[in-house]
Design a binder for these strands. Structure first.
Lengths: 193, 193
DNA sequence: AGTCAGGTATACAGATCGGTCTAGTTCTGG
DNA sequence: CCAGAACTAGACCGATCTGTATACCTGACT
């Protein structure tokens, strides 16, 4: 498995960092195509010239936005999984961390899924980041569950992935309350049967 | 529960129907904000004047696009559920029909979820169509499962909803092959335990 | 002292955005 | 016969889009 899909290409000077923060918020809240570079520059208190000096293109800002979010999500999750004491605990912790992450950062659903809705071209440089995170999550679930059930780890990993993705969508679309908690319960039932 | 979220407002003259077909394909494949009305008109072989005479605004074209897709999905599903002979059969048929629908119409995932990624404003006239379809699906699952387990119908309905939504995302993002089939298996396991 | 990266301010270019308008054509029903 | 609905052709509007250019300022490191 090759890793480091799209490493940070852009050195984050202070102005670039502010721009990335502003772009991240705007892209997530309003959608990628609905946000122009002028708005990003204005919200970040940065000149459009600086934006293009640092990032080169809007497309690259999008790539950095997704790469940054992916990086922070994986770091957040890894830190919490580090202190888990059992595979079962680890799996359930993923759902706990997801719930907290959604409350804090993703009221409108998974940013990768939302970005995928706006990026049709698989050759787009952001595409690998999106699918890379999902593949990583699937591998994570599968690896976590392997000690519990070596023979059915693949199947269980996929089941957990479906519950988790479904919960993210249900949360973002507000289909019903407590979607992450319900998914966690179902995951527990699946693993303790 | 109030129904008929957004009934057809626009009489579908021949040109309007062609425009709606073209708009539907373009909106789904490229995203709503990425498609301009000039492109829709050109692809449909229709004048922009005609577009605005029939629909009045791009926003209304979006509404008709989603309403039409919602209508066709519900009709497609209802027809197949009509000939089911047991609640278990009905639930599993939902997954079967979904799989066929995705293969035929939705290689990039659920159009409602994708549209939601681009529409932030809950007061947008399309918002009710999106959430309405998801609510309808949740109610459908819950009602289908009630005869099997009256006491846990709500919980089972939500579990099926998570599996189903997760499978749609997994299919669209190509996280792994056979997502709908796997979800169907899990649904069967959930109901025959 | 001098260089240079990082920044601001602002004007501009060419394309495309959603939307409107005038003018003329074709078909159909009373 | 003729009114009206449905449509085409195409110019036009102001706004916004991504991206570029010129000119100037500031602080840090040699």
């Amino acid at each position: 498995m090759s890793s480091t899909e799209t490493p940070r290409r852009v050195p984050l000077t202070p102005a670039a960092r502010r721009a990335l923060v502003a772009a991240g918020r705007l892209f997530y809240e309003r959608g990628i195509h609905a946000v122009g570079v002028d708005l990003i520059a204005a919200e970040a208190g940065v000149t459009k010239k600086t934006l293009y000096d640092r990032f080169g293109s809007k497309e690259q800002i999008v790539v950095e936005y997704l790469a940054d979010r992916d990086e922070r999500w994986r770091a957040c999750l890894a830190a919490r999984l580090d202190v888990c004491e059992s595979p079962l605990d680890s799996v359930l912790t993923v759902f706990d961390v997801s719930r907290e992450w959604m409350d804090a950062n993703s009221p409108r659903g998974c940013s990768m899924v939302n970005a995928h809705a706006e990026i049709d071209d698989p050759s787009h440089p952001a595409y690998g980041i999106i699918t890379g995170q999902k593949q990583w999550m699937l591998t994570l679930f599968t690896d976590l569950v392997r000690p519990l059930a070596p023979d059915s780890a693949d199947s269980l990993g996929r089941s957990l992935m479906l519950l988790h993705e479904g919960a993210l969508v249900a949360f973002g679309l507000r289909i019903f309350l407590g979607a992450l908690e319900h998914a966690r319960e179902q995951a527990a039932a699946l693993l303790t049967r």
